[in-house]
Deep mutational scan, measured.
Amino acid sequence: MDPFVVLVLCLSCLLLLSIWRQSSGRGKLPPGPTPLPVIGNILQIDIKDVSKSLTNLSKIYGPVFTLYFGLERMVVLHGYEVVKEALIDLGEEFSGRGHFPLAERANRGFGIVFSNGKRWKEIRRFSLMTLRNFGMGKRSIEDRVQEEARCLVEELRKTKASPCDPTFILGCAPCNVICSIIFQKRFDYKDQQFLNLMEKLNENIRIVSTPWIQICNNFPTIIDYFPGTHNKLLKNLAFMESDILEKVKEHQESMDINNPRDFIDCFLIKMEKEKQNQQSEFTIENLVITAADLLGAGTETTSTTLRYALLLLLKHPEVTAKVQEEIERVIGRNRSPCMQDRGHMPYTDAVVHEVQRYIDLIPTSLPHAVTCDVKFRNYLIPKGTTILTSLTSVLHDNKEFPNPEMFDPRHFLDEGGNFKKSNYFMPFSAGKRICVGEGLARMELFLFLTFILQNFNLKSLIDPKDLDTTPVVNGFASVPPFYQLCFIPV
């Protein structure tokens, strides 16, 4: 058959498939802009700032609406009420993970971030239990974070109060905490193996944040037939998995079943207990991918939040002064901060919360999916439909947070200066898919920041009023603009 005829037939089939998918069930789905064949609503979305586009569309179609990214149908949730109703009140029905062709290629359905069903539930339950087990290797997770915080302070001392970009050092600290939990080992910041790991993690975040990856996920045929950065992403992930597998083999040879040292040991012990169960989800494949998931999810998000926190503290020296006064009063100079201190430091706690609220790190979270046909607000959402959640619409709700575009710790303080919780605080998402490392991340943010401010004054290279804190939105995360500062020993 003539190649031209084959091409026309293929394009015609794709067009018909697109029209059929977009028209099927439209009477039951939430409203939304009319999609174009094949490309859907992509032309109506700013790929570099999806969150802003969703906010604009919500003003037209309401808090629940339908979009098509290519052939992929998505239902968008915008605003606290619908997000709570879906992710919390109907948590089980909305607990699936959205379709990610690239991740599915890399992870093969294993791990904790992109798995679904029984596998996801069992691996998540085990990971939560293990991360909360403060007795691994007779050292609590808090001990590990405190140790890394001391190392971080010593690295900052080496800058000798000269101007520096904190990106690298602030990236090393949370990565080392995860390494300590998974591998029972922290690395020197100049260790070549550690630097290679950091390089792969950072490069992957840069790649994932590009519009090209959005295109690959919406048109998965590209993955096999086109060159691009997605190939580098898959190569980096394969490198990390190979490295983790080597460490798993080392653990198998040296493990003491009665004295687990780290996450890998705990997983291997669980595998041993379930070795007679042919349906067990505790396999080497799941261990390797879960460890890679924890490394990827637990490094860049925390380091970016820390980097943004220091920029905001530079911009608002009056806030920094209040935090340091609270540190001096509650902790002093002669001991290290600990998590028990947080309950006695409402202002510092409010500042950490406000940093996370203000920066809105992951504006749309990772997409969910419905696990069955769901009736939601008089609409029928078919099983498997991807759910896109606007966390921006919750964290920047102007009824809950007056002047949401302003950095103001009073958003989390009552009139008496006591810490005030808010149900709208969802930087880790909400419901059954809430970030498994939430507790660890909150511990790291509090301890790293208090250790830094206990030991250093922060000095800006320019007038604080002239510092730009506008986030650089890159399609996946909101990151701070480049800046330098000086760490002046107190």
Rank of each mutant, 00 (worst) to 15 (best):
C216S: 08
E122K: 10
L380P: 03
T392R: 11
K52L: 08
L245E: 10
L361H: 05
V153P: 01
L77R: 00
I362S: 07
V82W: 05
S127F: 13
I213N: 08
N378A: 07
S23D: 11
G431I: 02
Q454C: 00
M426N: 03
C338S: 14
L366E: 01
F419D: 01
T301E: 04
E400G: 08
L461D: 15
D2L: 13
S336L: 12
P404H: 06
C266Q: 12
Y189M: 06
E326I: 01
A292H: 15
M271T: 07
F114D: 05
T299F: 08
I222V: 14
G40V: 00
R307Y: 07
R357C: 00
F65M: 11
W20L: 13
K275I: 04
W20T: 10
L71C: 15
L395Y: 02
A309S: 10
R261H: 05
F134C: 12
M406D: 14
T385H: 04
L233V: 11
P163S: 09
E155R: 06
Y424A: 08
L388S: 01
D349K: 09
K232G: 06
G417A: 07
I47T: 14
D256V: 06
P480E: 03
T371S: 09
V355K: 00
V76D: 01
P363H: 04
I47D: 06
K185P: 03
W120N: 14
T470P: 09
C266R: 09
V374Q: 05
S478T: 15
V352R: 01
S18K: 15
E253C: 12
S280H: 08
G298V: 03
Q184M: 13
G117H: 08
D165T: 04
P317C: 06
E147Y: 09
H353W: 03
Q193R: 12
G91S: 13
E199K: 15
W20V: 13
S58K: 06
Y358L: 09
G343M: 10
T130D: 04
A309W: 01
A86K: 00
W20G: 08
P260R: 05
V8L: 15
T301S: 13
K399T: 15
L54Y: 06
Q22M: 10
S53D: 04
L201T: 09
L156F: 10
K200V: 14
P163E: 11
E241V: 11
R105H: 08
L16A: 14
V330M: 08
F183L: 08
V8H: 04
A350M: 01
I123Y: 01
P346V: 05
T66Q: 06
E444N: 07
T66M: 05
E274R: 06
G111Y: 01
I39G: 05
D191Y: 03
M136A: 15
I359A: 12
I112V: 12
Y424E: 03
T283I: 07
T55Q: 13
T385P: 00
N277K: 12
P37C: 02
Q22G: 12
V473E: 12
T305A: 06
R329K: 15
V153G: 03
M198G: 04
S95D: 05
D293S: 05
T167M: 10
G431P: 01
